Amino acid sequence: METQLSFRSIMLARIALLVALLLIWQFGSVWSGSEFYVSTPSEIAQSFWQVLRSGELLFHASITTIEALSGFLIGGSAGVLVGLVLGRSRILADILDPFLTAIYSLPKVALAPLFVLWLGIGIEMKIVLAAVTVFFLVFLNTYTGVRSVSREQLTVIRLMGASEHQLMTKLVLPSAITWVFAGLRLSVPYALIGAIVGEIIASNRGLGYLISNAASKFDTPGVFAALIAIVVLTMLLNLAVKILERVLMPWKAAEEHREVTV
């Protein structure tokens, strides 16, 4: 029978695993002579502290945050809206299905040069690239959630005289909201990917620029320092989505609490 560990025990196990991995990396890199290629945690920490103390990291991270967050909000909102509309209109979904499938199958990174031609190398290009990347993830999850609503429940509510607006607000949205937030959580790192890829292709600021600039100087610790900043930023955005999910879905938090206490 599986036993549950306390939160403190889990945190201690995580810290121990992290320390072990860092020690293996540190001494393994020095012992194998591959510091130039994989660096060491101590050099990465030093590089991270230098760009943080100089204010350079916060400046570039703020630019990437604006781009990713704007793209996330625009793409996520459009994905939810289109998913709701097509989920409720089977005819419209059948008409648009091959077009959406064709665009979805296209790697979004391949669109970056086209966006550069259309929008230039400013912040708008990164926002659009992030929004397009996020849109399809949120759209597909929302569409699936709407289509999975019980047909029997829809029929019963219609027989009771409910309007389309009442169907959406009282049944469809509450039923599909779990799918919506699943799509939003999945799309957080992809919003950052869109923004960072745009910065690597054409930009002189942002975390993507920090990575490409450090790589051009063969500064491996600098590359890893920028990657750590991206990981931290992704975790913060994921935390914001989880908080919003708890606010809009309080019953889920209550269910998780009951599962922990059982």
Rank of each mutant, 00 (worst) to 15 (best):
M168G: 02
M168P: 01
T169H: 08
T169I: 01
T169N: 11
T169E: 01
T169K: 06
T169M: 08
T169W: 03
T169V: 10
K170F: 13
L171Q: 08
V172P: 02
V172R: 01
V172F: 07
V172A: 00
L173K: 06
L173Y: 07
L173G: 07
P174E: 07
P174T: 13
P174D: 08
P174H: 07
S175L: 09
S175R: 10
S175G: 09
S175I: 12
A176Y: 11
A176N: 14
A176F: 13
A176I: 12
I177Y: 01
I177A: 06
I177S: 13
T178S: 12
T178L: 08
T178N: 12
T178W: 01
T178A: 07
W179K: 06
W179T: 13
W179A: 15
W179E: 13
W179L: 05
V180L: 04
V180F: 01
V180K: 00
F181Y: 15
F181H: 06
F181V: 03
F181K: 02
F181A: 03
A182H: 04
A182V: 15
A182C: 10
A182R: 04
G183R: 05
G183F: 02
G183M: 12
L184T: 14
L184Y: 12
L184G: 05
R185N: 15
L186F: 13
L186M: 12
L186C: 11
L186Y: 10
L186W: 08
S187A: 15
S187W: 11
S187K: 07
S187C: 12
S187E: 14
V188N: 04
V188F: 08
V188G: 02
V188M: 13
V188Y: 06
P189H: 10
P189Y: 11
P189G: 13
Y190P: 11
Y190H: 06
Y190Q: 10
Y190S: 10
Y190E: 13
A191H: 05
A191E: 04
A191Q: 07
A191C: 06
L192I: 15
L192R: 05
L192P: 05
L192D: 05
I193V: 00
I193M: 04
I193F: 00
G194V: 14
G194P: 03
G194H: 00
A195V: 14
A195S: 14
I196K: 01
I196F: 02
I196A: 08
V197W: 08
V197P: 03
G198K: 04
G198F: 05
